[in-house]
Amino acid sequence: MLKYILQRAALALAVALVVSFATFMLLNYATDPASALAGEDATPEIVEQIRQTYGFDRPVFVRYFEWLGGVARGDFGESYYWNKDVAVLVLERAPVTIALALSALMVTIVIAIPLGAIAALRPNSWADRLALTFAVSAQAIPSFWLGLMLIILLGVMLPILPISGDSSWQHFVMPAFVLGASSVPAVMRLTRTGLIEVMESDYIRTARSKGYRGFALLRRHAMRNALLPVVSVLAVQLGQKFGGSVITESVFAINGLGRLALQSILGSDIPTVQMLIFIFALIFVLMNLLADLLNAALDPRIRIT
């Protein structure tokens, strides 16, 4: 068990390092950050000057390891655009996004899992078809557009919710719904297929032969097996919520990490963009690790080998 945890942790660390390196190369090497920073109208001289001032002329490997060393010491560098310590910037903006991501995950769980379970209990019934139609439609709605529609509906036509900002819990209702809705189809489908598969398995037949039926059968014999893959996917979805916050925060004017990312990109603020991509990747990797551990706790086939 301990070996399993260590293995997973080592893999997570390796992924985080590779991702940070790849991002660094893409942002600093495959493209020319100096000319991006200088803007479209800059003369070659100005670009060259920027290149020297920011040290873009030095070998990219050296700069990567400097950056990595900085991260290890807690020094995330200086933002070009905000003229602030990146770490301070991130810490200021993080709580809003964390709150948004967690509430979005709650929205996903509360809608997707019961819907998937209801659909799975009677495959091909009207309830199942309705749930699947809902999933197909939800998958096709661009989330920024869903946000704008909600603003028109709930913010303007029936003004019951605030349409921008993050100063009260009401401000989070629409953004959390929009961000959470994007994961509902995937999680719902997974719950449904997982449960259908489990309900057709031999061990469910065994349980039925022992007299289990209906809800008791579901609760005592099927749910845990069916939820094993859902746990992994939920963790992955939570990780992706941070990336997805870019759109939601920009639609609802929430000053979190997502909006910071958009502003930094538009301001060619490479150190901040680099750091945000790294942090989001790290969150994803940690969530994956958490999912592995949860799976190990729930599944004796992993726990006891």
């Binding site: 398995s201 031999d202 061990y203 065994t206 014999h221 845990r224 097996n225």
Partner: peptide
């Protein structure tokens, strides 16, 4: 009842 597939007829997580 006893079934054909002993490998899959018991619930793996309990």
């Amino acid at each position: 009842m006893i079934f054909q597939e002993p490998m899959t007829s018991l619930n793996p997580v309990y």
